[in-house]
Amino acid sequence: MTLEAYLSSHFVDKPTFASLANISSARLDALLAAQAVPAASYTCSNGVIRSAAFGETAISEPIEGEFFRPECARWALIADQAAPGEERDAVSTVLAGELERHLRSCGLEVSAVEAKVASLLPHFFNGTFGLCVAAPSSGAGIAKKEFLQDKLVALTRNGTETEPAGIRRSELLKLVDDYANAAMPFSPAEYDRSSRKRLVDDFRVLLASD
């Protein structure tokens, strides 16, 4: 798949994103300037694609513009409905509540939940979750992907241990599948550096070779 096809399949441009949130482009610009909504996951210009997660990567396709996940329009709606000056706080409150509920349901201690939520908020607002999370419209979707990734990294030593202690092969395979479903496929520009390649595709090859 080309980068252009990938972006067209999973993302929308800035005017379309504003339309999905039922706000003007000027209002979206104001919310972005206030860091009250997730930033564009990708920005393309002058032969380069940029993201908070992967930095700058040279591309050969003539793509220009900012690209947002349409699912994230929910956060722009929440921000737009908040009182003036409280847009970021409104989004943060909803997001943190949803993250906390899902992480608690996974069995994390209260202190671990609080630390995890605090660590996730910056990645939410810089647009990272739009490119790596399959369901970024809710805190639950974000927390699920992050929890599964943390668990898989710990169990497999970042995709290198195919027989971790304390887990059956069938359970390990299900964990990989669950993580694959919770994560994005990643674009051709950064796939080789992605957690999906390391923890899903490459790791499945390792498991099959055992």
Rank of each mutant, 00 (worst) to 15 (best):
E64W: 03
E86D: 15
R88E: 15
E71H: 11
E61T: 10
S45V: 09
R50S: 02
A76I: 04
A79M: 07
S51A: 05
E71V: 00
G65P: 04
E66K: 15
A73S: 11
L77Q: 15
D89Y: 04
Y42N: 05
L77E: 14
G47K: 10
E71D: 06
A52K: 04
G47S: 00
A83W: 06
E71I: 10
F54V: 14
T57F: 02
V48Q: 01
E56W: 12
F67R: 04
A82E: 11
E64I: 02
A58M: 09
I63Y: 03
E61F: 07
L77R: 13
A83H: 03
T43R: 15
G47L: 05
N46R: 02
P62K: 05
F67H: 13
G47C: 04
V48F: 01
E64L: 14
R50N: 08
F67E: 00
P84V: 02
W75A: 00
I63H: 03
P70R: 14
C72L: 10
E86L: 13
A73I: 05
C72E: 06
A52Q: 09
E66P: 05
R74N: 06
T43Y: 00
D80V: 05
T57C: 10
C44E: 05
A73Q: 13
S60P: 01
F67P: 06
G55C: 04
L77G: 15
G85R: 05
P84C: 08
A82Q: 02
C44S: 03
S60T: 07
L77M: 12
F67V: 09
F68A: 03
W75V: 05
S60V: 08
G65M: 07
A73F: 04
N46V: 01
F68V: 01
E56V: 12
G85K: 03
E87V: 04
I78W: 10
G47Y: 05
E56F: 11
E87P: 10
A90Q: 08
S45T: 09
